[in-house]
Design a protein around this nucleic acid. Structure first.
Length: 472
RNA sequence: GGCGCCGUGGCGGAGUGGUCACGCAGAGGUCUGCAAAACCUUUUACACCGGUUCGAGUCCGGUCGGUGCCUCCA
């Protein structure tokens, strides 16, 4: 199985440390606001990663963190605390805000049919682990303390700039911030921040260095190592994390353990909405509720997400969501054929043999496409081709069985719900009655029966092979 | 300014040098009691200019354009 590795900047073969187990850590949400579709794009993509690992015969162990402690608004460790800010906005405590958005987030995972990670550890439940890790870094001489906190000295970590290929001298030229002459490098970052002397924070803890709260980056190192060991098979996250968060995670973790932190780093690219990037500051985030309010299903959103590759900067628009919803609708009607007996003409028997071949071919290409760095767009086109063939030739008894296993496999890998249940005998009876009415040219009765079925969520299309139903 | 990425038909979007996937939308047609489908046909798509090659959307160089990060952000 091949995955593009940011570390090596090429597609690497996955070679887990302890196969068949594959350890995965993905950066989760900071729970201080509603996630927007851009966030969900990323989580769906990691869901596909996990499902593909299972397909490839691995046993993925997936940990995603919940950042419920307010790291500061800026990577330069300046400014406001996000959770405290959210708390003020909503007139709640930081703890309440964190709880509310954590629940919202896990609910969203279910709504989007995203595999539940094996663990969703919260930063606030792992303060001690973070303190221990900072202590370790302190013992090894990677830290220094200034007025407002304990910092990581990036100059002590020789390969700090390698991962993101940063040019630290040129970077931020003309933008050099004055850190009260207390920070030696702009790239240094906080491991532990002290509480302000004049104010009590909602969230603060005692530490060997004084009362305060952990820096943003340390939680991921501490929790991933606790649950998955010193070296991860795969670490994944949004592409925005590459230059700062992930760079810092590597610096902390590798300084502490002396071992590689992750073998493969994967980055999900951002999406744009109407050509603009989504950002908190622009306030153009679309939520799941916005999607549903416009009459689109989250399943359509899911399919839309799969229509682009995770490494490309994809575009979101209502128009393309509409296209995805239409495509899904067509898929549903073709999927419903799995339940339907059709009167075939003899000449089609040969086609049915080809149908079986096509469907088995789809199972092969499905595996190939996904294991090739999660090429979902290519897989979708494979599905379309096979479905087109099914539509054209209809199904025999044999091919129906194969088709059923194909639909189940697609649902399993893509998290769609193409396999719906069969309709009831009563509904089949209604269809048969309508067919008789049509044969008698009793159009009024025939149309009434059709309306009746529509009310039950069943659509019909009349073909030379009889009336075929699909779920509306 | 530094480090990157990208330019594919109306829209979205794959493409690993060798008949330019696929979806959505549009147009025309066949079929059809109506409806819905289905099927067929359909517009010189690979930003531009050079180069390498028997052959380039695919490799190399340049030009133009867009865009991301270097403040928050998946």
């Amino acid at each position: 199985m091949k995955l593009y590795n940011t570390l090596t900047r090429k597609s690497d073969d996955l070679q887990p440390l302890n196969p068949p187990k594959v350890t995965i850590y993905t950066c989760g949400p900071t729970v201080y606001d509603y996630p927007h579709i851009g966030n969900w794009f990323t989580y769906v993509r990691w869901d596909i990663l996990v499902r593909t690992l299972k397909l490839a015969g691995y046993q993925p162990e997936w940990v995603m963190n919940i950042t419920d402690v307010g790291h500061l608004v800026s990577d330069a460790d300046e400014g406001e605390d996000k959770l405290e800010k959210g708390a003020r906005r909503e007139g709640k405590s930081a703890w309440d805000v964190a709880r509310f958005y954590t629940d919202y987030f896990t609910d969203g995972l279910k709504r989007l049919n995203i595999t539940m990670p094996d663990k969703l550890p919260k930063a606030t439940d792992h303060i001690q682990e973070q303190i221990d890790l900072i202590k370790k870094l302190e013992e090894k001489g990677f830290t220094y303390v200034i007025d407002d906190g304990v910092y990581y000295d990036t100059a002590k970590f020789p390969h700090y700039a390698d991962f993101a290929r940063l040019d630290l001298d040129e970077q931020q030229a003309g933008k050099r911030v004055d850190f009260n002459n207390q920070k030696r490098n702009v790239s240094d970052f906080a491991l532990w921040k002290f509480s302000p002397k004049d104010r009590k924070r909602d969230m603060e803890w005692d530490s060997p260095w004084g009362k305060g709260f952990p820096g943003w980056h340390i939680e991921c190192s501490a929790m991933s190592m606790k649950y998955l060991g010193d070296t991860l098979d795969i670490h994944a996250g949004g592409i925005d994390h590459l230059p700062v968060h992930h760079t810092n995670e590597i610096a902390q973790s590798e300084a502490a353990t002396g071992k590689p932190f992750a073998k493969i780093w994967m980055h999900s690219n951002h999406i744009t909405v109407n050509g603009e990037k989504i950002s908190k500051s622009l306030g153009n985030g679309i939520t799941l509720e916005d999607i549903e309010a416009r009459g689109y299903s989250l399943e359509a959103l899911r399919l839309h997400i799969l229509e682009s590759h995770y490494r490309s900067q994809s575009k979101f628009s209502w128009e393309s969501l509409e296209a995805a919803q239409n495509r899904l609708k067509n898929w549903h009607s073709i999927a419903a054929l799995v339940w339907q007996e059709v009167n075939h003409e003899p000449k089609q028997v040969k086609d049915h043999e080809h149908t079986v071949e096509r469907l088995q071919g789809l199972l092969r290409t499905l595996t190939i496409s996904l294991q090739d760095d999660l090429n979902t767009p290519q897989l979708l086109s494979n599905i379309d081709e096979a479905f087109g063939f099914v539509e054209k030739t209809l199904l025999s008894k044999t091919s129906r069985q194969v088709y059923m296993s194909v639909l189940q496999k697609i649902d399993e890998q893509l998290g769609l719900n193409l396999m719906t249940s069969n309709i009831s005998p009563e509904q089949y009876a209604l269809i048969a009655t309508r067919q008789q009415a049509r044969a008698d040219k009793n159009w009024r009765e025939s149309d009434e029966l059709r309306d009746q079925l529509v009310k039950q969520g069943i659509g019909l299309r009349d073909t030379p092979h009889g009336a075929l139903w699909y779920r509306l």
